[in-house]
């Protein structure tokens, strides 16, 4: 079991590291998706079936498309331009931004009360129990997230549909 975990971690970290080193943005994005797949594999390893499949469905199925489309639609010119590497200001801003995010994440992880007992027996959580948990104690956060996403969806629809509805576009 530990061996599998080592392989999965190597996959996640390796994909992420190579994604940062590559100059081709599409390759980087695809490797990032590979590292998300590794995260899904990690969830499976940890026994969280539902979360693993949701990770694949949402990250690999949907968010990957957002990332790839964003890369394709924002790139100027045909060939990927080489990024200026040895620039001090770039180095410093990168360090500050990355360090900030890393600090927040590390702080959050350290602040979590980790349950050490999980190592011996991870209870297999069924989908039904998960649903009951979401609808019971966590109903408020679920509703807030749902509301947020609905507003975002409605906003996207409104932004996209500035055409008059009563003007069929296929009149000859």
């Amino acid at each position: 079991m530990t061996f599998a975990l080592i392989i999965i971690s190597a996959l996640i970290l390796g994909c992420a590291a190579v994604a940062m080193a590559l100059r081709n943005l599409i390759h980087s994005a695809l490797l990032l998706i590979g590292s998300w797949a590794g995260v899904a594999a990690f969830y499976l390893w940890a026994g969280a079936e539902f979360v693993a499949f949701a990770q694949i469905l949402i990250y690999i199925g949907a968010i990957s498309m957002v990332v790839l489309f964003a890369v394709l639609l924002t790139r100027q010119g045909d060939a990927p331009e080489p990024v200026e590497f040895p620039s001090l200001s770039r180095f410093v801003t990168g360090l500050i931004a990355g360090g900030g995010v890393a600090g927040v994440l590390i702080g959050a992880i350290l602040g979590m009360p980790f349950d050490v007992r999980t190592a011996q027996s991870a209870p297999a959580l069924s989908v039904k129990e998960l649903g009951a948990q979401l609808m019971g104690p966590h109903a408020v956060s679920l509703l807030v997230i749902g509301l947020l996403l609905t507003v975002a969806l409605l906003g996207a629809v409104l932004l996209a549909s500035d055409r008059r509805p009563d003007q069929p576009e296929d009149t000859p």
Binding site: L30, I33, E49, F53, I56, A62, M65, S126, V127
Partner: peptide
């Protein structure tokens, strides 16, 4: 699987990546 339906759609949605590639 307990979440077989979700698995089915997860595996199916990954084909989008292949289309893009």
């Amino acid at each position: 699987l307990d979440a077989a339906l979700l698995y089915f759609f997860a595996a199916g949605s990954a084909t989008e990546l292949a289309i893009f590639m």
